[in-house]
Computed example of a mutant assay.
Amino acid sequence: MKIGLYFGTFNPIHTGHMIIANHLAEHSDLDQVWMVVTPHNPHKQKNTLLDDYHRLEMVHLATKDFPKLQPSDVEFKLPQPNYTVNTLAHLQEKYPQHTFSLIMGEDNLNSLHKWKNYEVILQNHSIYVYPRLASGEIDAQFINHPKIHRIGAPVIEISSTFIRESIKNKKNVVPLLPEKVWHYIDHNLFYKK
């Protein structure tokens, strides 16, 4: 199976994430998209980042009715700080029957050359890139790279930061979140202060 890995803190997961993930699962040659919840980096200030397992639970709730979308806590078990190249090596070893690709926004493609062992990633894995409004200048080496596939997904500019701020300011964010995720946030009083 061809698996696309969509990494994120998902703090919280919102309809923008779901639209992108579902678009790739339905309109590319990927068989599944795994939503990889990035754990809290112990070297960074926690701020508004919810506990890893609350964020994973929200991804479970959001993807429940989408068989091609799967939550993943693979990075919870890896040493921190973790690098994508290590996660890919771990998954390839654990699931040799699958082929793993990365999913990223065009804005992240700009900084790919700064990633640890990015050449190794590109040697062994494809990257599916979805459009972003403010993506800046793409590094020339990535423009016609055979392993980089541009996907004409909808341009979604919803941010988890905006959602958290809106909840804190008592604004209605229901349309921006999968219904079960909103109920989970509301029930647990997350992001209220």
Rank of each mutant, 00 (worst) to 15 (best):
Y83S: 03
M58H: 03
A21G: 07
F100Q: 03
H27L: 03
V173H: 00
M18D: 12
S166G: 01
M1S: 12
F190N: 04
Y53M: 06
N110L: 11
W182M: 00
E57D: 12
E165T: 09
W115T: 10
P39C: 00
E119R: 15
I158C: 00
N41W: 01
T84A: 11
Y128A: 04
K171I: 01
M18R: 11
N22D: 15
G105T: 04
L69E: 00
E165W: 05
P67F: 06
V36L: 05
H17M: 06
V129E: 08
T48W: 14
P71Q: 12
S111D: 08
E179I: 11
D31K: 12
N108D: 08
T38Q: 08
I185H: 00
I185E: 01
Q141N: 13
T161Y: 15
V59W: 03
L109K: 12
K46Q: 14
H149C: 01
Y191Q: 01
G152C: 06
V33L: 13
E157L: 05
D65A: 12
H125G: 05
K193V: 07
A89T: 13
M18W: 14
F7P: 10
L109S: 04
Y191S: 07
K46A: 08
P79R: 08
W182D: 01
K2M: 12
E165S: 06
F7N: 10
D73C: 07
N188W: 01
I121L: 12
L102Q: 06
K46I: 14
S166F: 05
L189V: 11
H17G: 07
Y184H: 04
T84Q: 14
A21Q: 05
Y184K: 03
T63W: 08
K170D: 10
Y128S: 09
I20F: 00
E26S: 12
S101N: 12
N144L: 03
L102P: 04
Q97V: 07
V59L: 03
N172P: 00
V181M: 00
L177P: 10
D186A: 08
F76L: 08
M58N: 01
N188R: 05
N82V: 13
Y53T: 01
S166I: 02
F190E: 01
K193Y: 13
K168Y: 11
H145F: 01
P12A: 02
F100I: 02
H54W: 03
T63Q: 01
T15P: 07
N82L: 09
